[in-house]
């Protein structure tokens, strides 16, 4: 730990006088910079260099001639999507589902983090934590198998409904009813991801100075008041930051999840068809790399714009929460 402390001290002193140039900074903190090398390399190799391949979105890609040898077609690869009759429905579905996912996962993750932090018994806490995180490690294919057991016409939910009402006609044919699917998808998303998502929040809560709580207790604050007046306000920045980060992927439908759960069931398309599943349907007979890349580019660009905008907004209202 001593390295970091030393650096911070030196750095703090220098910054007060004059901002160092990059070269000076590197020379001074060479060890820290060296340790960043793997991460920097990773992003250069796997994120920046491949961006050149975006050119594929503007050519009629033929594997035999390669990316640069294929004919340039301008915006033709974008045409099929934006002139299709469904693109607005699909984009709306994608956005709507993602907003639901982000909101419900955040609320659930924060709630789980607070509840975990309130558990005092060490063993109960550890076991609960492991149990809520576990679903994150299950693939959607497996979750899809569970889902059949839960929501099939003779599945658990329907048995409960029929058992309680004693009326077989009350059973819900989930797989034939598109209207219930946004709720179901949110349910599975939260079940799968909220536990894992709570880790960051839990870490933030652990980092809150205990003296604040002690002082509040002395003043007679109840446990609930401690949560609403201390924990939540102090979590605000983390919440905003993580939300901005998830906004970047808001135009990507969660293909792994939706395709595993819905599959080819066209009865459910009205509420579950997202950009990614639409692409699969329209291109599985005639695969076309150019068209796929074109839509990927649109998704990334829109996500990027949204990140910038939401970061701007965050900067205005809560500068500490902004990413940059």
């Amino acid at each position: 730990m001593s390295v970091f402390k030393a650096v911070r001290k030196k750095d703090g002193g220098a910054a007060a006088v004059k901002k160092p140039t990059l070269v000076q900074d590197i020379r001074r903190n060479k060890w820290l910079y060296l340790m960043c090398v793997p991460a920097i390399l990773f992003f250069i190799i796997f994120s920046y260099i491949p961006m050149a391949g975006l050119y594929i979105a503007f050519v009629n890609y033929k594997p035999s001639t390669g990316i640069w040898g294929s004919a340039f077609v301008g915006l033709k690869n974008f045409e099929f999507f934006f002139t299709s009759k469904d693109w607005i429905t699909i984009t709306t579905n994608t956005l709507f589902l993602n907003v639901l996912f982000i909101a419900s996962s955040t609320i659930a993750s924060v709630a789980i983090a607070i509840m975990l932090s309130e558990i005092k018994n060490k063993w109960v806490k550890k076991i609960t934590q492991s149990v809520v995180i576990l679903p994150h490690f299950m693939s959607w294919t497996i979750v899809a198998l569970f889902s059949v057991a839960l929501i099939a016409s003779d599945g658990l939910f329907n048995r409960i409904i029929v058992g309680l009402t004693n009326d077989p006609n009350k059973a819900i044919a989930f797989y034939n009813t598109p209207g219930v699917w946004p709720v179901l998808l949110v349910f599975f998303k939260v079940w799968q991801g909220a536990g894992f998502g709570s880790i960051v929040y839990l870490a933030t809560i652990t980092g809150i100075d205990q003296e604040i709580y002690e002082a509040a207790a002395v003043e007679g604050a109840s446990r609930w008041q401690c949560i609403t007046r201390i924990t939540l306000p102090l979590l605000k920045n983390t919440i905003i930051m993580l939300t901005i980060m998830s906004v970047g992927k808001i135009f990507y439908g969660d293909f792994g999840m939706i395709y595993a759960l819905v599959g080819n069931n066209s009865l459910l398309y009205p509420t579950t068809d997202v950009i990614d599943t639409y692409l699969l349907r329209s291109l599985q007979e005639n695969t076309n790399m150019g068209m796929t890349a074109a839509i990927g580019l649109v998704q990334s660009l829109l996500g990027f714009i949204l990140v910038i905008v939401s970061n701007k907004i965050a900067n205005k209202f809560s500068p500490d929460a902004a990413l940059f």
């Binding site: 033709k76 045409e79 099929f80 002139t83 299709s84 009759k85 469904d86 080819n264 069931n265 066209s266 009865l267 398309y269 639409y278 349907r281 329209s282 291109l283 007979e285 005639n286 076309n288 068209m291």
Partner: peptide, 18 residues
């Protein structure tokens, strides 16, 4: 005719399995 095929396939597949 990639653009047309892609658009039409998407429409046809909307009800195909049902």
């Amino acid at each position: 005719i990639q653009t047309e095929m892609t658009k039409v396939n998407a429409i046809v597949s909307e009800n195909a399995t049902a």
